[in-house]
Nucleic acid binder design. Structure first.
Lengths: 242, 242
DNA sequence: GGTTATCGGATGTAGGACGTCCGATGCTCG
DNA sequence: CGAGCATCGGACGTCCTACATCCGATAACC
């Protein structure tokens, strides 16, 4: 037995300790009333203040970075981050691809959630939509149509269309979540291959959604979005059945 | 210059390299067709295979663990994880609390998203709801009423009510997301204090929601849920205005 | 005065040493 | 012979040291 002196609180699982460490760091940020963009103490300082080695601390810091809590800049310092959902996207993408090998369950669930969000919120968004925002939506549609007639893929334009659809709500969390879903879907899209999708038809579908929004017809807009998602769902199902 | 032999790909930001490393690990899982619960190579093996130090590797592994991609068991090994959104909850909770110091913007956005999901999906859930599931919902209501009349708080019962409301959809992703929102809301709830909420009134509100669901009245159910969330939103706004 | 070289500090990476935990093997004892 | 326990080996957890890399700022230089 070499346990001379102080015995560390050994009766806790390592995982719990690491989570506690993360909480401590976040608590420290809140206590010191740091705002987004404010600098955090250096690794050495934190390491000393929290009573853990730099290595252990760094593992927690990396997690916080992945969660979008802090931002780390090499050779400069660490800061409270504004917002970053990229890591979540990676995690979900992984699960989605993993599930594609079975029945694509998680991928379909993802579509369900997205559908609920979009068709559920389109009405509210239309309520506060400005003329400029409406115009920017049509612009995205036009871009899709151009790309479609050229036979090129238009995933980016598609994503932009949906993003602009809900920009008026001014809800960053929602935009971020939808961004995550898009990222995942895009990756899955690559996985299941281009398939036999009809670009022109898809573009036309978006044109009709825009038309309903422009006309202020909430019911139609919601309905069309639902049909849009049915199509996506069908494509995933078909791809899995190979 | 001591760059003898191979020069590491030095022209990339450290952050990009770390993300690449995470992707490599996930790619490795997909390539080897590992399923949830399957063991990963040991840290040493991975460290060697990917050509990075154990320390760097561990930082990526910890992130993947936080994202719910892998599960790490001390002294045993690492495994592909089933599903885990806890870390996401922590990240969102932090942002929510951070935003409470301003105008509670992010907290309100969170409620908006939750509202869209719940009032948007209640109809679909009612379509596939079994009698047993309906009964379990009433059970949750009863529990809330009991606790309310006893003057005790019933956050857990409240969360359970909402969870059971959407259990029929069989959408794990949705349940997880809602679980995250609850976790965040609960933490924020503690932050803004018990306030002057009327427990009995809240319980009654849930009773009426249940009644609408039991009666198969989708429109009323959705409407009541919306009103429920309006109340939550009001409480957050009031708490911030101090 | 503008540009460049240098410096200090902070994060990034690597490797080693030791502690801690877990499951499995093999032993002892009833 | 079987149940319980001690031991063992492997794997993750933590810490330390050393060095590389990067960034911003200061100071030297033209």
């Amino acid at each position: 037995m070499t346990t001379s002196g102080v015995v560390p609180q050994a009766r806790f699982s390592a995982q719990a300790r690491l989570r506690a460490l993360q909480s401590d760091i976040m608590e420290l940020i809140l206590e010191r009333e740091l705002e987004a963009g404010d600098p955090l103490p250096t690794e050495s300082e934190l390491s000393g203040a929290l009573g853990v080695g730099r290595n252990t601390l760094r593992e927690s810091l990396k997690v916080l970075q992945a969660l979008g809590v802090i931002e780390i800049r090499h050779g400069f310092g660490m800061f409270v981050a504004p917002s970053n959902f990229d890591a979540l996207a990676d995690g979900l993408t992984f699960r989605g691809r993993l599930s594609l090998r079975h029945q694509g369950l998680e991928a379909l669930q993802l579509v369900d959630v997205r559908q609920a969000l979009e068709s559920g919120l389109i009405g509210s968004s239309m309520d506060v939509m400005s003329k400029e925002q409406l115009a920017s939506i049509e612009e995205a549609v036009k871009q899709m149509e151009d790309l479609a007639s050229a036979g090129e893929n238009f995933v980016a334009a598609d994503a932009e269309f949906h993003r602009r659809l809900f920009e008026p709500l001014n809800n960053e969390l929602l935009i971020n979540l939808m961004g995550v879903f898009w990222k995942v879907y895009r990756k899955i899209h690559v996985e299941i291959g281009p398939g036999n999708e009809d670009l022109v038809k898809t573009a036309a579908m978006h044109r009709s959604i825009y038309a309903a929004v422009a006309a202020g017809d909430k019911v139609s807009a919601s309905e069309l979005l639902n049909r849009h998602f049915d199509g996506i769902r069908r494509r995933i199902t078909e791809a899995v059945e190979d």
